[in-house]
Amino acid sequence: MDLLDALKSIETGQHATNWREAIRLAGKGLVESGATTDEYTDEMIEAVEQNGPYIVIAPGLALAHSRPSPAVLRAGLSWVGLTEPVEFGHATNDPVRLIIGLAALDHDAHLEVMSTLALALSDETRFERLLGATSPGEVRALLAESAGN
């Protein structure tokens, strides 16, 4: 499965007033695309409550996820771009402008998707453009450009 196939839901220009709401938006994208049930959204929030805001893996970016569970129906990703950034409580990478929701069925099946995602985000110029993208089409175009390189 490639990244653009896995990324069923892309929303830009979204509004959240705190990190829980931001994760809920990412969860909503996963639920609406059939990847997860609502329980998975709660599990993603619990993961931050338990382990802290480590999911803010780079300046401006949170990779919201929990572990494989019955709440995951199939692997998938969701993308939520925020108009106003929110604080997750991370020491160096706050505030967050982009939340990528991740649902996986097991520890290995999504490696190819993660690899493509890592490649797409590793270019600093493209990363900034992805954080500031104002339409789903713009996000898709930027990701397609990276996959073609």
């Binding site: 338990q50 382990n51 999911i55 893996i57 996820h65 572990r67 520890h107 890592a118 590793s122």
Partner: peptide, 15 residues
């Protein structure tokens, strides 16, 4: 290492 072993730790392993 990450909290769940499926997301951030995989990205970190690749990088």
């Amino acid at each position: 290492v990450c909290g769940m072993g499926i997301g951030t730790s995989i990205l970190l392993k690749m990088n």
